[in-house]
Design a binder for these strands. Sequence first.
RNA 1: GCGCCCUUCGUCUAUCGGUUAGGACGACAGCCUUUCACGUUGUAAAGACGGGUUCGACUCCCGUAGGGCGCGCCA
Length: 473
Amino acid sequence: MSSPVITRFAPSPTGYLHIGGARTALFNWAFAKHAGGQMLLRIEDTDRERSTAAAIDAIIEGLTWLGLDWAGEPVSQYGRAHRHREVAELLLAQGRAYRCFCTPRELEQMRARAEAEKRPIRYDGTWRDRDPADAPTGVRPVIRFKAPQAGETVIDDQVQGRVVIPNKDLDDLIILRSDGNPTYNHSVVVDDHDMGVTHVIRGADHLTNAARQMQIYLAMGWRVPVMAHIPLIHGPDGAKLSKRHGALGVEAYRAMGYLPDAMRNYLARLGWSHGDDEIFSTEQLVAWFGLENVGKSPARFDFAKLENLNGHYIRHTPDAELLRQFLGFLPHAEGGKAMLAKIDEAMKAKMLQAMPGLKERAKTLVELMKGAAFLFATRPLTMDDKARQIMADGGKAALQSMLPVLDAARVWRAADLETAVKAQAEAAGLKLGKLAQPLRAALTGTTVSPGIFDVLEVLGREESLARLRDQVS
RNA sequence: GCGCCCUUCGUCUAUCGGUUAGGACGACAGCCUUUCACGUUGUAAAGACGGGUUCGACUCCCGUAGGGCGCGCCA
């Protein structure tokens, strides 16, 4: 029996939980749960300017919405700075690190020169073996890790395989800034070690960092955790995921009306697979998840598939539960709060009644919201001047002739009504090209509606049907 | 520029040396439905390229091309 698995999700508070981060969290979570272990949450908040309470809340809320939990309280990396400093001093004392007195300006010049000469951009090791007595006055030094210069660093990655990086390509990284604060690569190692993390699962953008971090583990004589670098998510064009491609926070997806279950399912399938299984429960994900089934190539984000999946989850969620989720979604939706304010118990009952017809047509909760809008229309429905004119011009006759058809149909949508009215009008020899739009608005009270007969069903068929006839005649 | 990684239908993927290269989304066509949606049936659609290794390569090796990531006193 091996030691319990401990994974961690370690986002930096950027203001929202990035979709890629959400998937990383999901993988960490699923892996830990699968192994009967647990996931920890650490906020990489050493960049004080970015680390606001709101940014941290966004991460926690995003994870919670996705249904991912973690053990214990979130760890603040910044809060552990003293420990990072302590380890840096230890490395210094052991001769595994040294003080570097180069100024940022000098380093910049060094980089510029290297670039101009087409040389690898790397710290040249000026202070690596230089006598600290040569130190210029007035320069606060940083502490650099004394990285091995020969040989290679090998990462036995669970996803990427055996990755070999020549040590000559890794320079002496700064572990402690001149202001005494630790840098990322150093903090990560100290924290992961101290927190007992057994498996580090993170984005492939950290692969090179893994090599540098491993050198620190080795220098400290610490056990190196199992590494797994999962491929990044790309945009539809194969390039980096941009804002317009979906590089949004999970909050944005929530606002777009995606169900957390659908999101979780979609994200899990992005880069991971279990044979031909496409739709699976969280329990199945946990039961099936393994690093060996994570692919190595980046996956493109595909809204069409997400939407399809979301539609499936909406359709398969029991009405009452869907209503509950819908109500919880409204505060996050554009215009949702206004709708929420109009929802009382009676309205909830109506919505529940209309739900079977509604959810069949909605791929997102936003569509569900639009679909439900007809329930809020005030009655009797009113016609605007334009509609009235059209009715006088022959629209009334056309519509009247349609009543038997309307009556027979179980469900009508505004868009369909438009088509049907046009067809009917043409058959009657009427010029009603412009009839549909205003008529639609007039009859349903909204521009988007699942249709008249949904209204009738919910309000009471007889009465409303009579009211509709009144309007037309 | 240097290092590392990636490459099967448009997209997500299965395949772990021998398959008619399978599934899903999307697309198209039909059925169901007096509309839409749902459902359902079917069609088109892939191993980047070039060399090897092997009786046999999508699968293993090398190269080329294309793409990605990294190279901060950011994380």
